[in-house]
Amino acid sequence: MNSQRALSNRTVASGSVYGAPCWVSLTTCDLSAAEKFYTAVLGWEWRTGKLGEQYRFASVGGVPVAGISAVAAMQPKAFAWTPYFATADADETVARSQERGGTTAVGPLSFPPGRAALLADRDGAVFGIWEGELVSHWEEWRRAAPVFVELHTRDAFDAAIFYAEVLAWASDTADCCEVHYENEKVILRSRGDVVAHIHSGAVDSARDPSMRPRWQIHFAVTDVHACIEAALAHGGCLVREEREIGEAILSDPDGSRFVVNAREQFPSRSKGNGLGIQ
């Protein structure tokens, strides 16, 4: 609680978006192939920024919406989409994660105009944190390429408590995220928008010990079927399609999974039941 009060005395350069997803980034072994794939599937444009030739920024209408970094060819699981959450102090956030059983893979490192770290929660799901100014303002990012992130884990309530304590969700911090429980999922809202889900199946279902907890990125698109066709034509795969809800899980040529959702089916602003996580 003392760390949460300390956070409330700081100003977040990312637009006072505490604990909300603020960026998504992909690792790949072939930047050129990844650019071609995501241009075809999601219509993105590309540029190089201050981070050099091995990190490329995707944009929509001139607004940066995602990043792709090149890494050496490794195990397939090294290539994945990762969500980043806004924080006021990367060092404090890393310390809170470690105190609660999380692990630190990288950082915090300085990437002007901010600092970043790559972490994993106590079940092994990888996520990032970002302290500082965003490449684009949060509201612009949300409008340019609507996105929400979803954690598939073994225990949704335990995970919600971990992230609430690490990222100051549902705290007395100004502009923090609200946490609710709806339709057997933990729902995270920032400024009224649904920005994240956490779920582990039905309340009375048994845990699946073989499940690998992971964050999954959802992108809003105008035509799910067109995205599927483009992915298949450019070396990707269709993992699963749910036509009745306008959703498809796709895999890029590296095996990195992501989800496309019909814009009209994207999460709403409806209110739910508060969990009272403090």
Rank of each mutant, 00 (worst) to 15 (best):
A72Y: 00
Q75P: 00
C22A: 03
H199F: 15
D193Y: 11
G201A: 11
Q75F: 09
G236K: 04
A66V: 05
E184P: 00
S110W: 03
V194H: 05
R189V: 14
M211G: 06
G124M: 07
L188N: 02
E133G: 14
E244T: 12
L119Q: 07
G235N: 02
A206N: 10
S200D: 14
V63G: 03
R212D: 06
V259E: 05
A58Y: 08
V41P: 00
V106M: 15
Y181L: 12
R257C: 11
G255I: 05
E242S: 06
Q4F: 14
D175T: 14
A40P: 00
D208Y: 02
F127L: 06
A170S: 15
L238K: 05
D254Q: 06
A105T: 08
E45W: 00
A78G: 07
V179D: 04
A248Q: 10
P209K: 05
V17H: 14
S251T: 13
D223I: 07
L167I: 09
L118Y: 15
S16F: 08
V195A: 10
L167Y: 11
T11G: 13
I228C: 06
T27M: 10
T27A: 09
A164D: 12
R154L: 13
D172I: 10
H218Y: 15
V63K: 01
Q54C: 06
A117Y: 04
P64Q: 10
A34M: 10
D223A: 05
P209R: 06
A66C: 14
Y163S: 08
V203M: 11
H197T: 08
P108R: 03
V149M: 09
P76S: 14
D121P: 06
P21D: 07
V259H: 01
T11W: 04
D193L: 13
S8A: 11
G276P: 09
A196H: 00
A156S: 11
A206C: 03
G67N: 04
A120W: 02
I249W: 04
A159D: 07
R214G: 01
W215D: 09
G272S: 08
G62F: 08
K77L: 04
Q216H: 03
T11P: 01
E99Q: 15
M211S: 08
E92G: 01
A231Y: 00
C22K: 08
P64D: 12
E242R: 08
E165H: 10
V179F: 10
A230T: 09
K50T: 12
F111Y: 12
A226Q: 07
Y181R: 11
